[in-house]
């Protein structure tokens, strides 16, 4: 593990503690700084409101030149989240910039919950419901919101 990566992650952690953006929290595992656990609270005025969604962030020594692998651990029903919890988010792929940090990643995911992009669906069913049957979409989202409280 290269020291710049470790130093950068420590700084990300400090920043997340001293100046946490609203509705997100995250911390590295106690024995492995390359693996982080994070929680995003469902943004208010969205069907995701009150949900507590857990995520795992896996970094490697290319960080911050390369994005980490980010996955939802909690069950998720969202047009841009795959069944295995992986996300389809531009800044985690081709639009990544080394100036992004953990706080920026988590805030972006939070706003993705707010504004799904049904045009590049990772979950076709969620995307279709989002476009055509908003009521049913909200009902399905509420299901996973309730499930998120349990574990």
């Amino acid at each position: 593990m290269s020291t710049p990566t470790r130093r950068r992650l420590m700084r990300d952690f400090k920043r997340l503690q001293s100046d946490p953006p609203g509705g997100i929290s995250g911390a590295p595992c106690s024995d492995n700084i390359m693996l982080w656990n994070a929680v995003i609270f469902g943004p208010a005025d969205t069907p995701f409101e009150d949900g507590t969604f857990k995520l795992a962030l896996q970094f490697d020594e290319t960080y911050p030149n390369k994005p980490p692998t980010v996955k939802f651990v909690s069950r998720m029903f969202h047009p841009n989240v795959y069944a295995n919890g992986e996300l389809c988010l531009d800044i985690l792929q081709n639009r990544w910039s080394p100036t992004y940090d953990v706080a920026a990643i988590l805030t972006s995911i939070q706003s993705l919950l707010h504004d799904p992009n049904p045009n590049s669906p990772a979950n076709a069913e969620a995307a279709n419901l989002y476009r055509e049957n908003r009521k049913e979409y909200q009902r399905r989202v509420r299901e996973i919101v309730e499930a998120s409280w349990e574990c």
């Binding site: 390369k66 800044i91 910039s97 100036t99 992004y100 920026a104």
Partner: peptide, 22 residues
Amino acid sequence: HYLTQKIVEEGECRRILCPESG
């Protein structure tokens, strides 16, 4: 580091952008 990563790992040459986001 950034340029080396882009050139060696991603094989990018024509469109290596400024590292700043956006």
